[in-house]
């Protein structure tokens, strides 16, 4: 098992290198270079060619592509992510500001949707054809098909404006920073963010569970005289869990990079809203960094999925 994990991590390194190279290449292929982003077009028109070259030289832009990539990579590995061209702030500072907020939101949403999705899916499968199952199915369909900003606005209307139970948006008020102060702010955006995924996980868990329950070994388990909970959970759900974990795992990066809309609706100071403004202001270094981050999130998620599925299903562990 340990060998399997180590091997999976080792495979990750060349993949990450290739992807970082592709992202860097993508930036290289965009018209202009760093200097043209730094100087306004008016100044560019009046500036002399020597001064531009001197500026390029001082930034190391005269060096060949691969050398620059190498220097950039070294910087990345040391945590030197460069500077935002829009505000001149170090990207490191921006990320350390924004990333925790996004992670907090995503982690809570992921937790909610996994727990609710699995529990409801299993109930739905065990009571197949019943009213409970039908209600859950219809609700699930609604959850998947209605866009999340709609739920977001409705939730704000009900819980923040009418009932005044929860704040309208934002992450923390100045001066309040204990763990408990996070709760009222995060609970509504996280729940709204998790609706679609809960519905997805629930539908998936239901069909996966039904599939598992129709297997011969469920009959074997019953024929041994095991109690129903053990048959359903240990023999049914454990097997049904593998595809569900794959689904949840591949939603993870979407949650990190893609909670753009919810972050806008709730004024949540996360990576998603930063990403939008970076794209708008053509802040390439920042866009590149966030893109790299979501790619890394995908890689990490697939690693996690592989490890978890190997833990659950011994047939996945290919090595002995």
């Amino acid at each position: 098992m340990l060998a399997y994990v180590i091997r999976r991590i080792l495979i990750l390194i060349p993949m990450a290198l290739v992807i970082s190279f592709l992202v860097y290449l993508g930036l290289e292929l965009t018209p202009g270079d760093a200097v043209s982003h730094m100087i306004s077009p008016e100044m560019m028109a009046s500036i002399s060619a020597e001064r531009l070259d001197a500026l390029r030289e001082s930034l190391g832009l005269e060096q060949p592509f691969f050398v620059r990539y190498w220097i950039w990579l070294q910087g990345m590995l040391q945590g030197n992510f460069g500077y935002s061209t829009a505000g001149g702030v170090s990207i490191h500072t921006i990320l350390s500001d924004r990333l925790p907020a996004t992670l907090e939101l995503s982690a809570v949403a992921l937790l909610f949707s996994t727990i609710f999705g699995c529990v409801l899916g299993v109930i739905s499968a065990l009571k197949r054809g019943s009213t409970t199952d039908n209600v859950l199915t219809v609700t699930g369909m609604l959850g998947v098909s209605v866009p999340e900003f709609f739920f977001g606005l409705v939730a704000i209307l009900i819980f923040a404006l009418k009932l005044q139970w929860l704040p309208v948006g934002g992450r923390l008020l100045p001066g309040y920073d204990s763990y408990w102060d996070h709760v009222p702010h995060v609970i509504m955006p996280a729940l709204v963010l998790s609706i679609m995924m809960t519905a997805g996980v629930m539908r998936y868990a239901r069909s996966s569970m039904l599939d598992a329950l129709s297997k011969e070994y469920i009959k074997t388990a019953r024929s041994k005289g095991l109690p129903e909970w053990r048959v359903n959970l240990l023999h049914g759900f454990r097997v049904a869990l593998t595809p569900v974990i794959v689904l949840i795992g591949f939603r993870l990066p979407v949650l990190i990079g893609g909670s753009v809309i919810i972050e806008q609706v709730y004024q949540w100071p996360g990576v998603g809203s930063e990403f939008i403004s970076a794209v708008r202001s053509q802040d390439y270094p920042l866009v590149m960094m966030i893109a790299l981050l979501s790619v890394m999130a995908v890689l990490t998620a697939s690693l996690l999925v592989d490890i978890l599925t190997a833990l659950i299903d011994p047939r996945v562990r290919l090595d002995k």
Partner: peptide, 17 residues
Amino acid sequence: SEIAMIFQDPMTALNPV
């Protein structure tokens, strides 16, 4: 414990996990 059963296809009758 009193009556036990074995099934047709041992490939699917044992839980793989």
